[in-house]
Amino acid sequence: MTTRLMHRMLLLPGLVALVVTFCLPVAWLLHMSFMPEPDSPPGHAAISFHAYAQVLEDGFYWWVVWQTVRIGLVVTCLTVPLSFPIALFLSRSTSPWRGTLAALAVAPLLTSTVIRTYGWMVILGRHGLINRTLLGLGVLSMPVRLDNGTFATIVALVEILMPYAIISILGGMGRLTVELEQAAALLGAPLWKVFMRITVPLALPGLLTASLLVFVLSISSLVTPQLMGGGRVFVLSTEIFSQTTQALNWPLAGALSTLLLALFGSVIVLYQRAARRLEDPA
């Protein structure tokens, strides 16, 4: 009895922190989204669905949601396959450099996203590394626009999110051993069949976690679409940002944030369904 009480007591600090830093702000956000328009006359109804009506009626916001999901999907579909070979290599390597290489793979996390985004601006810019090289080689006669747009946003997001993907894939490969692949090969499976029938299925939990993480991080990212988009990329996070800082329409920002939360929620539900399927395919 006392030990059970003790166990519950141990949960308390975490619970308090969760309530204060997550539940209260979300509740406040929800409350905010039901506030009347900023310039509506005082004494109006305390609760208003105006912000939601505005989001649902305006085609622009539907387009923004679609943009957000599309960029998230493209980034996920690029990041996870690019990170998989690196994670495989790191998990297989027996070299004494393995630790160093693993640290290098996640080292980008040590620099701020802002810095890394600026790095990509230097590379992709009108007078950036790629354009200058291609012009110098005579491949191009005029610089092409690589920055300020969806392309640049996706490129930067992929690079920024790869360390997260690598770590998640590595963490989810527990059941995959070299011996299983060797066994499959000795049973007559050529390399690509070993990969498709053994390696990928057994790495699937990690791949799934990585996909979820990358998708969620990319649809919630603000700095990268803001800076790399050059004002041309409209996603939910940039819209929320401009509504809070420029339009000062906090109810609208609240409604958009709730929409983003709902998006997260549905992705997590999908993820959990898939994960349960993996654990028990029958």
Binding site: T177, E179, Q182, A183, A185, L186, L187, G188, P190, I198
Partner: peptide
């Protein structure tokens, strides 16, 4: 001769059965 053409059956100490 590559592994998949060696026509050898092997039982590993860990058995290496495919868990999926």
């Amino acid at each position: 001769v590559p592994l998949h053409q060696r026509q050898m059956g092997m039982v590993f100490q860990s058995y290496a059965l495919f868990p999926h």
